[in-house]
Amino acid sequence: MLTITNLHARVDDTPILNGIDLHIATGEVHAIMGPNGSGKSTLAKVIAGHPAYTVTEGSITWKGADLLALPPEERATGGIFLGFQYPVEVPGVNNAEFLRLAYNARRKARGEAELKTAEFAPLLATRIRQAKMDVVFAERDLNAGFSGGQKKRNEILQMTVLEPELALLDETDSGLDIDALKIVADGINTFRRADRAIILITHYQRLLDLVRPDRVHVLAKGRIATSGDRTLAERIEADGFEAVLA
């Protein structure tokens, strides 16, 4: 589904990724861990096409095509979703209307008819219920004035509405209390399916206790330093990154 080969990327003049190799198959959940500054968020943003990052070497193949040739919106409509570590506030843009526009962009890319507000409302209501969010959030401005936890849950709501084939979740668990973490984990587990893949970027074992990954990778200095099954995450939790990377 997604193959990353020798990926190098920088922001401004600073190299961040220094040769990432990674293959994600359909149905898999991969966890990416690593110390601060190791390049985890950069990797997610480069896959999503964030324009602040420049790929200097390597390739990303998505469903057999060159992903790097696509602008971010075509990556999104093609099935890639990035749940931001710090979701952006967009005052004045209605959450429900934004979701309908995004949903329709994906439908349009698939050659399907766009949904009117009344047609989209039942789907949104279902997803809001599943995300255990208050319906009032649909009518509020996109992320504006949301708490950190509400923003993260809104990212999960967007993911479940847009139904991507690859979800990149960048520290979606950070800043959540235990109840919110369980709700987010439930959302991810419900989303998990044989025809979808998930990349979880996280610092903590606690999310991986709730969402069991197939593979765990540790990033260090812009490269995958080591990979393993979920017992690797347990070792990191017990001994820390330094011990695992030694």
């Binding site: 999503a48 096409g49 964030h50 324009p51 602040a52 602008p71 971010p72 919106e73 990556r75 999104a76 409509t77 979703f81 990035l82 931001f84 979701p87 952006v88 967009v90 005052p91 004045g92 843009v93 934004f98 526009l101 995004a102 962009a105 994906r106 890319a109 401005d141 996109l142 504006a144 967007q158 847009l162």
Partner: peptide, 25 residues
């Protein structure tokens, strides 16, 4: 604008939405 683009909106639509949103508040 980037945030909206990562949700599938083209850059022109994203820019218009952000500008409208600025006033709509």
């Amino acid at each position: 604008i980037t945030y909206l683009r990562t949700r599938g909106l083209d850059s022109e639509t994203a820019r218009t939405l952000v500008q409208q949103g600025f006033s709509d508040e």
